[in-house]
Nucleic acid binder design. Structure first.
Lengths: 216, 216, 216, 216
DNA sequence: TATGAATGAGACTTCATTCAT
DNA sequence: AATGAATGAAGTCTCATTCAT
């Protein structure tokens, strides 16, 4: 399981409850709702039920907070997808399952997924998001490498293929979400199937059709 | 050839050169250098060597200016790639050439490409950027459809495949550029070859290796 | 006939048509339409069909132009009302007729009347408007003085009474116009009759009812 | 007693004095000194001894602040005049007293009174000012109606008469103040007496002379 | 003399961050 | 430790006025 986070920094010593996760939750929800730009510090503090001054005891700047938001959210996504990669089964199955898992989570989440993929702001946050992309890519890379060893897949630049899969999923699933329209997720899920089919072919180098899975 | 732009608005003229392209150039360069966020109106005016009031004679708001920046830049990219798609040759060759063209142009461009692909901004600008993605995708879709007719490629959801190609190129080429580091472009161009290979396999459903082209 | 204007200043020597009245007309119409604030120099120049630079050859500043607008417009109003005061008839009749004339002109004109009465801006323009108020007042004062000489009216401070009449007309007729609503002018004209009745009583010191006149 | 204000909004509190009245006072003084035009947010903040950001914590926009300035000032004036209308005495006495009270307060106040009566500004502020005129008029209307019931005054359009009184007071007292000149208030107060005499005659329809009161 | 593009001071507003209580 | 009022730099946009052609 990938760990995006650097060793967790020393936190403020506190008497009562640790407000760290509380703040992070509030911030994440606000970002999920309306993006980084709209998530102002005052609003986040309000949502967390604490004073703005208190928020600044836990996070020294908005940048830092947003970095944490991206880190933690991304980590969760990577963990889930990575969980799939650990299961038994052929590389092909795992690849399909992992992609589908990512896709179905992105189809919910919408705004948040978009924020993680395409809504940057500051270089520092951008850097973390890149880390997320790479972490996700690494999960796929691992599966591909297994498949190459198995001879399920032909020899290939596994890292590049993994990047491509991530790109396909982002472009295919997240970008269309950025127009606020609440598209019928049915059509999106068949679209997702086409995307994943493409990815499987790209990796396997032969005709494979991805059978859509029950949402999960 | 795609035309993203609406019919061009009537411009100011007389006395001195038309400042429209001058401003657009300055704005584009600033965006290319440091992204939308840093491109403030005052700075753009300075860079263009004009007063802020003059800037506002040509563009009624920052949003409008940024929309033009994205439109014009994106249009140029789409045009170039679309130009490739018009040439003679097999669908496979054209697909490779178009992808390679996009890739090699993105390898220069760096920050600008990133801005066109993944930076934040306002909904209005975002909408235009999405148009760019779709326009690029349509170019690839056209090639794929030709290939399917030719029986070069198997039957497939051409739109989804085209989106995937765009996603692969963005994720594979643009995202890595976003860290300011001046990566060795050699390694990037071999990376690009891997990416394109993946795309070709995804479309063709069989083993194809993309032979890197002479930079152009 | 009152002359509000100071001796007309030396104007620019010109070859072709004198653009002075042209500009004044355009400015007056714009002020009448949307007030001083909205009457920007560029817009006035456009409306007059001349260049902004030319406008500035005739009027050295917006303030000066607005002063002229108020002066000329007010002069016209004063002239019309003064014309009534010159006619034959009892002071009482003339007073009623003059008031009614002012009122009926104000009921058209709307925005312009408001601008002349209540929409000031700069001290310089304000000063001119005050002059207008005083000039109008002087017309009424003349009528009242005649009436006092005639013994139609009791001895009184004619200047103060005249100011009051002006005040009644402004407050009673112009102020209600400031809400953009296009009130039924029927109800306004009966309102006007009540206003004028009040004025006549105030001057005459006995019961007089003003019989509304045919609009003119 | 008229109440122009809507229910007062929830205010900021805690730590330090409530800055609401402080700001309002500063703004009122600036308007009184130089009118709405000169009352810029930065200047108001400076005058109140606070930062511009603080100003915006209390008033969301300049318009809102100006509305409050007009509302609160006007309310005070209306309250004082209305207080007179509640006293015992004949309608005639009350009418004279109310008018005199208004007049004597306007003779101080100068610029501020002018701002409340005749300065420009935005539609939103204008609307509030109109409310002030109407509220003042309503006070006089009440007195007149009492007088009509008493048979002190003849039957008449009480609303129109009340508007006239307001108009007389504004035109007779406020307008002359608008030229910055510090007129001898002695002459003004005898002028005021003439104005009020006119009003009484207008309402009563017979000869009444208003005996100037001791200033209050 | 006419033109109108260019100018730039100045107005309003936002929001991350600080610090006295 | 918590609070939240206060701060003010920074950004966008307007419009009267100037001046080169």
């Amino acid at each position: 399981m990938e760990d995006i986070l650097n060793p967790p920094r020393v936190r403020i010593r506190r008497r009562g409850a640790d407000k760290h996760p509380l703040i992070l939750k509030a911030a994440r929800e606000l970002v999920a709702q309306s993006g980084f730009r709209e998530a102002q510090m005052t609003v986040i503090a309000d949502a967390a039920g604490i004073a703005i001054g208190t928020l600044y005891r836990y996070f020294p700047s908005k940048t830092e907070l947003m970095v944490e938001v991206v880190k933690s959210t991304a980590q969760r996504e990577v963990d889930v997808v990575a969980g799939i990669a650990m299961r038994d089964g052929s590389a092909c199955e795992k690849l399909g399952a992992a992609a589908w898992t990512f896709a179905s989570r992105a189809l919910r989440g919408r705004r948040l997924a978009h924020a993680l993929v395409a809504e940057p702001v500051e270089p520092e946050v951008e850097a973390v998001r890149l880390t997320y992309h790479r972490a996700l890519s690494r999960v796929f890379k691992t599966i591909i490498e297994q498949g190459v060893e198995n001879h399920e897949f032909p020899t290939q630049n596994a890292a590049a293929s993994a990047d491509c899969i991530v790109g396909c999923l982002f472009e295919g699933l997240v970008a269309p979400l950025s127009n606020g329209a609440a598209d019928a997720s049915t059509s999106l899920s068949s679209h997702a199937a086409s995307i994943i089919t493409f990815c499987l072919r790209g990796v396997a180098g032969r005709m494979l059709t991805f059978p859509p899975m029950p949402a999960g």
